[in-house]
Design a protein around this nucleic acid. Structure first.
Lengths: 207, 207
DNA sequence: TCAAGTTTGTGAATGTGAGCACAAGCACTA
DNA sequence: TAGTGCTTGTGCTCACATTCACAAACTTGA
């Protein structure tokens, strides 16, 4: 194996592989071939091998990949071994659902703080997380939290991100359906749920 | 303009443009240049022009694009002029949040039916939608609904999709974090919220 | 030790989209 | 009508990702 920059598309697939590896490990397997992993995650086996080849030789010909070792390596690449805690801003319907969402655990992630502006909500606890006033955002970095989820109305999304950036947050998952600006040092991923639904009809057969 | 297959990446951006056009129309504009649309949606102007060029000549040099005409054309391409109604399966935390989510309206989409297996929930109404027993899925096509959102636990995602496929549904937005199989005639888009959060740390600076 | 059967890792070909630069088209003014 | 300023549409190039095919590496069984 030689030096390679890991392609973005590969990074996008790594969590999928991680999910598949966890699933296989639960079933008591120690090794897995690219072919059986392919079957369980829905990606072709050659794609999997190519993706893994970007960050080292992990497989053994005739045997496959050591599941534990590979999973740890993927976690290391994705930096999930270091980043484990996230904050949520905006505890509306969607925010509450995210607090209750069990899926983050599969990646070792956990929402450990929640913020809102509504005095009615502040002080209450949802899914084990106490809701704080948004002013608490300023102390996030002190608390070792560098990752934030924004689930506020579109109109206040930008100012929310500005506040997070000012507080030193380094990554934002934005659910508000709009463009948000941030310095290059802060990575923002916008996830517009309605947009995903909106592009479905294009692919649906006519009649 | 000559014949071109519209690239997938362009289709993915069309809803973004639609959002930007709506926003500009609300402000009373009649025309918009690729440059000002670019500024409002965060895509380069040449990318916008290239994307629009795939499906016809809509702009006027020196003037820009007619907002209403272009918006209608995008809606037609995405088939949002035909597909307007969607069903939801699984009214848990996430499902309830989706029922209350106002963002679908921007694309003319509306969740008009909801299904669950929990007898406690069946019969109740959330955000104006009555929750029905999942057996009602079989009559979806009769009711003119061809689009479904799956927000059920991972363990029952596949069987839920199977049921929707059997009922004649043509498109599925799946929130369950797993691979789901469906015949080619049915388009499935899986949206794993936790996965999006999981790939963020990779892009965060190492402090 | 040898042969047969698996499975990996990767070079090369193919496909696809991003990015750029600029000619051509249109509005507006004089 | 001619000139100026703005904006579109697109041909071209480059970068990146997918796809394939196969040599090399390993296991297993005799």
């Amino acid at each position: 194996m030689r030096y390679h920059k890991i392609p973005d598309e590969t990074v996008r697939r790594l969590p999928i592989y991680l999910r598949g590896l966890m699933f296989s490990a639960e079933k008591g397997n120690e090794h897995i071939s690219s072919q059986s992993l392919a079957a369980s995650v829905g990606v072709h086996s050659w794609q999997i091998r190519k993706d893994f080849s970007y960050f080292g030789d992990f497989g053994t010909p005739g045997v496959g990949y050591n599941i534990g070792k590979l999973a740890r390596e993927i976690q290391r690449i994705l930096r999930l071994d270091v980043i484990k805690r996230a904050a949520l801003v905006g505890v509306g319907d969607l925010g509450s659902a995210l607090l209750a969402y069990p899926g983050f655990g599969a990646y070792g992630l956990d929402i450990v703080a929640a913020f809102d502006t509504d005095p009615q909500k502040i002080g209450r606890t949802i899914s084990g997380v106490a809701i704080e006033d948004v002013s608490g955002i300023n102390s996030l970095v002190q608390r070792g939290i560098f990752l934030a989820i924004v689930a506020v109305p579109r109109q206040v999304a930008q100012q929310t991100v500005d506040r997070l950036v000012a507080a030193g947050i380094k990554g934002v998952l934005n659910f508000a359906p709009c463009k948000v600006e941030a310095p290059k040092r802060v990575k923002v991923i916008t996830l517009d749920i309605a947009m995903e639904l909106a592009r479905l009809p294009y692919y649906m057969p006519v009649s």
